[in-house]
Amino acid sequence: MGMDDSAEIYGKYREELHRYATTLVGASDAEDVVSTVVLRIIRKRGLEDLDDPRAYLFKSVLNESRGYARRRKHTPLVDQPISDVPVELLDVVQAVMDLPLRQRAAVFLYYWESEPIDEIARLMNIVPGAVKRYLHLARKRLKGALR
């Protein structure tokens, strides 16, 4: 147990954590969010000491993202020039990034990562009913852009 084990766990979840963080705070801050979370954990103990490192990392990334999201409230989360987004997706991308943070997290985990509700509840540290509620509210908000 030690650095090698932590490195292996980090490597295992690195890509999906960065996708998650990018959806929550944008690409330019995603690396900072993940790095901050992982560093904070390994400075106290190794990742291998966590009972469920994946759930812990996802919960921590969501919590860490809340501060970044507040700071970037008026900054576009998609870093690319808007003209680069396929025109038929402009409204949808914007609508997704305008969702409240937890709704956006639920949408990402459900529609992109295809996680079941119970697993999303575990990763977001909320009850399954709350996940369903977030998804319901998100779909309602997205409907206009998806038409």
């Binding site: 959806t23 949808v92 990402f108 529609y111």
Partner: peptide
């Protein structure tokens, strides 16, 4: 359409630092 839009977003995700560079 939603998944395509999410694809646009996550396609921006950085690869992330190596563990030793954290």
């Amino acid at each position: 359409k939603l998944k395509a839009a999410l694809g646009v977003v996550v396609n921006e995700a950085p690869p992330g630092l190596e563990y030793t560079d954290l």
